[in-house]
């Protein structure tokens, strides 16, 4: 659990972070968004004390971060950054094993852990263990960066645009992997991104920052439905908000039981797909009605355009 209580950071006369309070529960994935220079990275780096905060208090599981020795604190917190910061003179395996080595784990345990992480992140041992960072693609390097952050199995993970500078497909794959990973590992994660779709897809809690302040925080769907002001509204996509909201809701939310008489609908959609995908299928197939199917391809319901659009159907 991470708690920031009325935290500020000043660089000389400039206030980079201004009196923010934030609580990230254990197992929660908190995403910070906001325009460039609004203090996201600064907030992140105050948590592992790469930057010392000027005012307020930062607690980890109830203990002020200043009571830890800096290195001890950082070895307990995973850290992944956009530029990856992989050591160019070390192999992938050695890079991943960095923090366990700092913690003086036995060699065999480090090896086993590195192997485990490489499998977890889809980096086949035989192919990647002995490569140098310069021999990796952008996506592979980011994976190694995340593996290194996870190496010592930290409770807390700080990620500063870890999937930045990647093509949309690789980025989406990594997002899926992070979600799957999080479902298994239940880390406490603070994640910074510029990509609003990424933020909405990943966040349990979305935090919007503006000029060093937190202007709104909460569940992504709540922020979409009730933005606090025009800034939050435009940041969340303005006119695009309808699609963004639809992307957050599963088909199962709006479908209704299949009626025998409606058997003429041909197009199908999975029940865990998003309403946005359903809308796209309707547009593409010129269909106003979709059959909803479960994992075993069995029809379990149907979704009409009217219902998708209106939430309540008065048929």
């Amino acid at each position: 659990m991470i708690e920031l209580i009325r935290v500020s950071k000043r660089f000389g006369a400039e206030t980079a972070v201004d009196d923010i309070s934030l609580r990230v529960e254990k197992g929660e994935l908190c995403v910070l968004v906001g325009t460039s220079g609004c203090g996201k990275s600064t907030t992140l780096r105050m948590i592992n004390r790469l930057i010392e905060h000027s005012d307020g208090e930062i607690h980890l599981d109830g203990q002020p971060v200043r009571t830890f020795r800096e290195e001890t604190l950082r070895r307990r917190i995973g850290y992944a950054i956009q530029s990856t910061g992989l050591f160019p003179h070390w192999t992938v395996a050695r890079n991943i094993g960095l923090v366990p080595r700092l913690l003086e784990w036995p060699v065999t345990r480090i090896q086993a852990r590195v192997e485990e992480l490489m499998n977890l992140l889809g980096l086949p041992q035989e192919e990647f263990a002995d490569k140098y960072p310069s021999q990796l693609s952008g996506g592979q390097a980011q994976r190694v960066g995340v593996a290194r952050a996870l190496a010592a199995d930290p409770e807390i993970l700080l990620m500063d645009e870890p999937f930045g500078a990647l093509d949309p497909i690789t980025r989406e794959t990594l997002q899926e992997e992070l979600r799957a990973l999080q479902a298994r590992l239940h880390k406490t994660i603070v994640f910074v991104t510029h990509d609003m779709d990424e933020a909405l897809r990943l966040a349990d809690r979305l935090v919007v920052m503006h000029q060093g302040r937190i202007v709104q925080q909460g569940r992504p769907i709540d922020l979409l439905r009730a933005p606090a002001d025009a800034f939050v509204e435009s940041l969340l996509g303005g006119e695009d908000r309808g699609l963004k909201e639809a992307a957050l809701l599963p088909v199962s939310e709006r479908m209704r039981p299949l009626r025998a008489s409606q058997g003429h609908a041909q197009e199908r959609i999975a029940q865990h797909a998003s309403l946005r995908e359903a809308l796209s299928v309707m547009l593409w197939r010129h269909a106003e009605r979709l059959i909803v199917i479960d994992e075993d391809d069995r029809p379990v319901g149907e979704l009409s355009l009217r219902r998708l659009v209106r939430a309540r159907d008065d048929e």
Binding site: N48, L50, E70, E71, T72, L73, R74, R75, Y79, I81, Q82, S83, T84, G85, L86, F87, P88, L98, V99, L102, R148
Partner: peptide, 23 residues
């Protein structure tokens, strides 16, 4: 030395001496 490498080294919890000798 790349600023990202330096930041990562500190962020992972290396001491000043470790950063000097190993990085």
């Amino acid at each position: 030395i790349d600023a990202g490498v330096r930041e990562a080294a500190r962020g992972m919890g290396m001491t000043g001496g470790q950063i000097l000798r190993q990085v």
